[in-house]
Amino acid sequence: MKNVGIVIVSHSPLVAEGAASMVRQMVGDDVPLAWCGGNPEGGLGTSVEAIIAAIDRAWSDRGVAILVDLGGAETNSEMAVEMLDGDRSHKVVVCNAPVVEGAVMAATEASGGASLAEVRATAEELSPA
């Protein structure tokens, strides 16, 4: 059984990698997981190209949930989703949730075989309505 994948996008590669290692330690290896952080020059920021590559690495036919930190990470992730080839963009969502807690909760839900909608809902329960 293939589970929903998780992508972590932060302005900082250190934050993204750290959140990813927390997911691995707390949830294990049953969930496809990828992270990216930093702008195209390696400074703080996000890169659409890197986000698309991370979605590819965490790809699952069940879908991919993206967790983001601030402003540009969200806008760039939405742009990356739209730029995916074919109809893959329909299987990717950007969650409105805090990046670290959201990634751990989403991965926990995904590891049990939940659907993309369930994974997203679990992550978004962390955000005040």
């Binding site: 920021g45 996000t46 659409v48 540009g72 806008t75 760039n76 939405e78 730029m83």
Partner: peptide
């Protein structure tokens, strides 16, 4: 622009 700007302005000016 989307691929190179890096901040939120990339998707905005790109769009």
């Amino acid at each position: 622009l989307v691929m190179t700007i890096g901040g939120a302005s990339g998707p905005l000016y790109g769009t």
